[in-house]
């Protein structure tokens, strides 16, 4: 009966899960503060949406890496999941290029 130690389910430790949860809560508070506290929000100016996106990305990383277990999973599963985001990025970039390089044509007649 399987002595092969490759056949082991990794158990994510209880402490890791709790830690991740606390960090997620912290980031949530941070994103609300940077958006809703007027002094901070105005100080950020045009960077505000980027900061919000960055915090969301950090939270997303924690969920994907630890709760979904990608950090402890195979490289191929990580590539598979990343490919979804890559193609989404492609769709966004090219549609963006189209919409923001349109030149309004007026009637030449």
């Amino acid at each position: 009966m399987g002595q092969n130690h490759n056949h082991d389910h990794f158990v994510i430790p209880f402490k890791t899960l709790m830690n991740v949860c606390l960090w997620l809560c912290f980031y949530t508070v941070l994103t609300v503060v940077t958006a809703k506290v007027p002094v901070i929000h105005h100080a950020l100016g045009p960077l505000a949406p980027l900061v919000a996106f960055g915090i969301a990305a950090a939270k997303a990383y924690l969920v994907m890496a630890h709760f979904m277990g990608l950090k402890y999973d195979t490289k191929s599963n990580r590539i598979i999941f990343a490919s979804g985001f890559a193609f989404l990025g492609l769709l966004f970039i090219i549609v963006f290029i189209d919409i923001f390089t349109r030149v309004l044509q007026t009637n030449t007649l």
């Binding site: 090219i94 290029i97 189209d98 919409i99």
Partner: peptide, 21 residues
């Protein structure tokens, strides 16, 4: 195949820049 879809849309109102790409 993922990069070429706009060739169905050259005369749709899509920008020329996008069309060339």
């Amino acid at each position: 195949s993922f990069f070429v879809w706009g060739h169905h849309m050259y005369v749709s109102g899509q920008s020329e820049v996008a069309g060339v790409i």
